[in-house]
Design a protein around this nucleic acid. Sequence first.
DNA 1: CTGAAAGCGCTTACAG
DNA 2: CTGAAAGCGCTTACAG
Lengths: 336, 336
Amino acid sequence: MNIKSIAKMAGVSVATVSKIINNYSDIGEETKQRVLKIMEETGYKPSSSAKTLATKKSNLIGVVFAGALNSDLNHPFFVSVINAFKKQIGLLGYDLLFFSNETFFDSKEDYWARCRHFQVDGCIIIAGDEVEASVHQLDQSDIPCIGIDIPLTGNNSAYIMSDNAKISAKVVEHLYMNGYRETGFLGIERHSEVVSLREQAFKESLRTFGLPVNPDWFIYSKDFDEESGYQAMKKLIATGRLPKAMFAVTDLLAFGAMRAMKEHRLKIPEDMALIGCDDIDACQYTDPALTTVKQDKEKIGKLAAIMLYDMINKQIEPSAILIEPEMVVRQSCGVR
Amino acid sequence: MNIKSIAKMAGVSVATVSKIINNYSDIGEETKQRVLKIMEETGYKPSSSAKTLATKKSNLIGVVFAGALNSDLNHPFFVSVINAFKKQIGLLGYDLLFFSNETFFDSKEDYWARCRHFQVDGCIIIAGDEVEASVHQLDQSDIPCIGIDIPLTGNNSAYIMSDNAKISAKVVEHLYMNGYRETGFLGIERHSEVVSLREQAFKESLRTFGLPVNPDWFIYSKDFDEESGYQAMKKLIATGRLPKAMFAVTDLLAFGAMRAMKEHRLKIPEDMALIGCDDIDACQYTDPALTTVKQDKEKIGKLAAIMLYDMINKQIEPSAILIEPEMVVRQSCGVR
DNA sequence: CTGAAAGCGCTTACAG
DNA sequence: CTGAAAGCGCTTACAG
């Protein structure tokens, strides 16, 4: 079933059918109704590939999970963002093409090439750390790109990220207002853009409030997982000199720290308060429930869709947006 | 940059270039190398839409999240399955097209039409409950489909699900072997295929082991969320007559039950043991950690990819596969 | 081993 | 308001 058969059945030209499909206004009402009816009856749907070939528009958005680290459909933060993005971009008439990172032609992960191959209209780039070079190539190309947690610089690129500095500022403010003066920080040894931002801002905020920045209380886990957080916290506890509160840059690390603290019979928050970051679902279910900072994933995803749409349709200049984080106060570091 | 320019640059015909791209064997080695080099230098990538138009193959797999309930990128079980599927299908040379469920032409969610529109080579249908009619239409079509947690019946369909009967059997066995005789069940009021299977099998297994099936201990939460589980458990506790162990059909419900139990100072597992189902990440972080039954998401996803590939390439007859579940014993119902 | 040409199913100036 | 025809970038018998 193709446009030609529809045209024949309706006794019109393919050009006319095409115009009806694409909602041109200069078509006679009765012709239009007649053709529409036939399309309905036959269950005809135009071929996307033929249309893409003719128009160079695919109505597809490429989804790139960039970075060797932390970027995967298993990462709860990114999944929520993508989910919100998918909903909004769907309303705007686009479907999503997920590049499967495994193999593609000979070149490994040449994202730009794959975008051209499929003629995607735009891309969303979701980034963890250790981002590969080909992402930057895509960023610099003429394909509109919206980055999540990655500062893109291309002429057709924009990006959105949580205001990481503000995350730390809010944490420090919360701690300060609730009487915590001696505070520690649980970071990660591996390099991570986002984590660095949080750490810098945390130190600055401490200084702003005149709180001590004690290097002994700045500890670093080997990796991003719970176990690493647990190990790091155990070491700190072993020193015997503990702060009254701890900020972990990630909820998962906070879970690990919590486990270590419980093991050593430290009461949370009485002996030491604990704050995580991200507000993944599990925070509600720990005991005590984890106080954390929420990134507004819904908003980030939705905004990404709207901005990308506008970029594709040349309605805005690319820019960078920082999203306001929000303290979620639970029992692990509550209001005194 | 298209195949014509490459042909011209290499001084050969487009037919020859096409054959080289598609690895035909009957091409002179030097011609091949020369053309390959030019493609490399120019960064040429063939257009997917033109190829799809000519061949009727898109190398795309459609991803359908079917069912009004429980089926979403926010559902941790399905996300893990899709992630494993994506990895494996990527190795087999396919990319993933996610249909954004929001709007599509006028017909709402006509999956089959969308598959034809994009000419996807096959589909993975991930299903929650309250599945829409158009999914069955797709199932009955000539497009190869693999279902996850949904029994497809079409001639070109197969499906994979956890062996839900075995889940319950394993739970009962575990309870029995650890001395629990009085056991309850936390189900859901809303209709759900999977949950029904678990409940039936649970009752049967109890009988098999000669354990009592006490209707008072079969309780039902309003919905799938934690809060509903909490409410249901509170009601049971209020009756004052409690079983020694409880099986919740979902980890989330178990979390809710756990909260209710803690609130009433019931010790877990001493006063009442608790078992969940699914093994979502958060199970490790509750206190006590939740004993549960794990569905092998990795295996399900990977198998789905391989089976779908074989169906597309007519190498197997469609069939139904049940996946063996696995007890994950943690503190909420440990070994005595 | 290589090439000319028809065809895949659309869109889009352009003519009427 | 409608249609004829070229073009989008590939593939594939078929001929040589």
